[in-house]
Simulated assay, not measured.
Amino acid sequence: MKLTQDQIRKYEDEGMLFLPNYFSEAEVSVLREELSLLPENSSGRMMEKDNQTIRALHGVHIHSKIFQSLIQHPLLLEPAQQILGDSVYLYQFKINMKAAFTGDIWPWHQDYAFWYEEDGMPEPRIVNVGIFLDEVNQFNGPLYLISGSHKEGLIRFEMHKSAVESEDVSWEANVSANLKYCLDNATITRLVKRGGIIAPVGCAGSVLFFHGSIAHSSVPNISPYPRRLLLITYNSIENIPRPSGKPRPEFLVCRDYTPLQPVEDDVLLQQV
């Protein structure tokens, strides 16, 4: 799968590219079934504030041949290589769950702020790929993204009050609803006046490519519709992080820098 030059220009201009109906319902069903078979107590599981609802699952590809194959699917890998203009390796794999009624907020932030501050990533030569495992609609907490905000580079952020007051340096402190590095209201107002807010919605199987520096967030899900988003993050092999302290866990930040190669494009349907 190769992106057109118009699609690449759109990504470079807006910091995102939305491709509805990218995977078939049969392929998405394979992914949902695999998700249901994952071990309940994986080391990368993050809970919501209620300590009952799963907020996110990190690094679950380690336990799944299907998810490992998905990482190398040409519909995802080849566009990532085009966008970054380089060979890539897997940087992160996670599933943000956004449960019905209880899925909590993700405040305004840039992913690259965490990767720069926590992991020592030299540059934002990285791309996120989000796969809709459920229909995403206006009610169940779609991603909000500010078009063009990636062009600002690393924006000055605010440390969340809980991060300032706490000595907690665990990985959980960076993926809770109280995100450590957030963008303030004045910054968001300025960025939205220029680029506006886009909230891609669509059926399960739709895919969103978005820049590591784009400002984004999501509201709580108070609807009866779950919104599970599978996220694969590819990094250029020329952009390997250099952490200044103890590296974060490998289920959160992969340290296998082997360049990825595409597999057969019907790899998911082979599992049916």
Score class of each variant (00 low, 15 high):
residue 178 N to G: 01
residue 258 T to K: 02
residue 72 Q to A: 06
residue 84 L to H: 05
residue 180 K to R: 15
residue 239 N to E: 05
residue 151 K to G: 02
residue 92 Q to R: 10
residue 169 V to S: 07
residue 37 L to Q: 12
residue 91 Y to E: 04
residue 148 G to A: 09
residue 148 G to S: 12
residue 195 G to D: 06
residue 120 G to K: 03
residue 28 V to N: 03
residue 18 F to P: 11
residue 86 D to N: 14
residue 182 C to F: 00
residue 96 N to V: 10
residue 129 V to F: 03
residue 152 E to P: 04
residue 3 L to D: 05
residue 48 E to K: 10
residue 198 I to F: 12
residue 37 L to C: 06
residue 266 D to K: 07
residue 157 F to Q: 03
residue 268 L to N: 02
residue 11 Y to R: 05
residue 136 V to Q: 01
residue 86 D to K: 04
residue 63 H to E: 14
residue 80 A to I: 02
residue 166 S to I: 10
residue 14 E to F: 13
residue 159 M to V: 12
residue 151 K to N: 09
residue 123 E to R: 14
residue 180 K to F: 00
residue 150 H to T: 10
residue 209 F to V: 08
residue 146 I to L: 03
residue 263 V to D: 00
residue 210 F to V: 06
residue 106 W to H: 03
residue 32 R to Q: 13
residue 211 H to R: 07
residue 1 M to A: 14
residue 40 E to A: 15
residue 182 C to Q: 11
residue 238 E to T: 09
residue 122 P to L: 04
residue 232 I to D: 02
residue 209 F to K: 04
residue 143 L to V: 14
residue 234 Y to T: 01
residue 56 A to E: 11
residue 214 I to C: 07
residue 30 V to G: 01
residue 169 V to D: 11
residue 161 K to T: 14
residue 106 W to T: 15
residue 144 Y to D: 13
residue 176 S to A: 10
residue 87 S to K: 13
residue 36 S to M: 12
residue 226 P to Y: 00
residue 116 Y to P: 02
residue 9 R to T: 14
residue 269 L to H: 00
residue 255 R to P: 14
residue 129 V to N: 06
residue 264 E to K: 10
residue 232 I to C: 09
residue 236 S to A: 07
residue 177 A to D: 08
residue 48 E to G: 04
residue 121 M to F: 12
residue 201 V to A: 01
residue 178 N to K: 10
residue 165 E to I: 10
residue 164 V to A: 03
residue 63 H to Y: 15
residue 42 S to N: 00
residue 28 V to H: 01
residue 24 S to E: 09
residue 206 S to H: 09
residue 195 G to W: 04
residue 54 I to F: 00
residue 2 K to H: 07
residue 55 R to G: 09
residue 55 R to A: 07
residue 64 S to K: 05
residue 257 Y to H: 15
residue 69 S to A: 13
residue 21 N to F: 07
residue 21 N to T: 04
residue 116 Y to H: 14
residue 235 N to C: 06
residue 192 V to M: 00
residue 178 N to P: 01
residue 30 V to F: 04
residue 154 L to T: 10
residue 113 A to Q: 01
residue 77 L to A: 04
residue 32 R to L: 09
residue 156 R to V: 14
residue 143 L to T: 08
residue 147 S to C: 01
residue 101 F to W: 14
residue 16 M to N: 04
residue 270 Q to S: 11
residue 210 F to H: 07
residue 38 L to Q: 15
residue 213 S to V: 06
residue 18 F to E: 01
residue 235 N to S: 15
residue 75 L to G: 07
residue 6 D to P: 00
residue 131 I to P: 10
residue 159 M to H: 12
residue 152 E to M: 11
residue 254 C to M: 02
residue 34 E to P: 11
residue 141 G to K: 11
residue 18 F to D: 02
residue 136 V to M: 05
residue 104 D to R: 07
residue 101 F to C: 00
